[in-house]
Amino acid sequence: MTVTEVSAGWVPVAAALLLVVAAAAASLDGALAARSAGQPLGGGLLTPVAETARLFGQRRRTTVAADLPLQRIGTAGLLTAALLMVAVVPFGRWTVADLTVGVVWFNAMDVLVWAAVWLAGWGPNSAHPLVGGYRFLAQALSYELPLMFALTAPAVAAGSLRLGDVVAAQSGLWFVVWMPVAFAVFCVAVAGFSVWGPLGAPAGATTAGGVFVEAAGVDRWLLSVGRYALLTAGAAFGATAFLGGGHGPLLPAWLWLLVKTAALLAVLVALRRRLPVVRPEQLAAPAWLVALPLVLLQVLVVSVVVVVQA
């Protein structure tokens, strides 16, 4: 399967698609929350709509002596990073930005999230968000390296950093089959840069909502949307780099990508129901001493296989 680049005119379509899938993820989360609260699922499914209505009716809020420019950058940064991530992911046979370094671009955007979350925590000049922002950095230091090496595994196997080539290399066998460690580490890292589920400590209840504490109205909306958008962009990238992208029988390529993204996203959303939050200081040792060597070993295995095949 070859991936062709479409004109920049399709950019809004790609962005809208990301937001629609992100809204679906929020709906699913709402429905699961309603189920555990013993409430009808229908109300839960409406969560993204109702929350949007609530936050657009709510007044914005600034704190005394806030670092407003930085806070704005942080607030808008999550959604921006997610949109820029998804721009390089091929939607079946089409992509809006066929970068020769697509994998590196994704990596660069997820590092952008470091700045965004920390700035969202620093900006309000308030103790709880500040602690939340610094907790994110601690957590990011643990998940980022395993993520980077996990990203190189598909690149080594495809011999290219272009996502179209990564998809093409999976025409026979999906990468997840022989790179399970890289895929698992990748999924945990997606939860990490989306401040989600077990890696949601920077926005956790222990800091009264962390980087969200002072945000109201459209600011809180942007942060929440950004979080779901990052989770969605991560799932779309994971479906592309590990789950064969648009490859699959019968259905058209774009639909396969959508199905795989939705499935991975649903698993990530459900993770939040199943698991408590990991404290960032507890994550460091297992990330550096277990996940990092394991994922390096994974890259070694992949490289050896590639060289033997060549």
Binding site: R60, R61, T62, T63, V64, S126, V213, E214, A216
Partner: peptide
């Protein structure tokens, strides 16, 4: 406009 508030403590 935004409401100006002291940080939540």
């Amino acid at each position: 406009g935004a409401l100006t508030s002291l940080p939540f403590l």
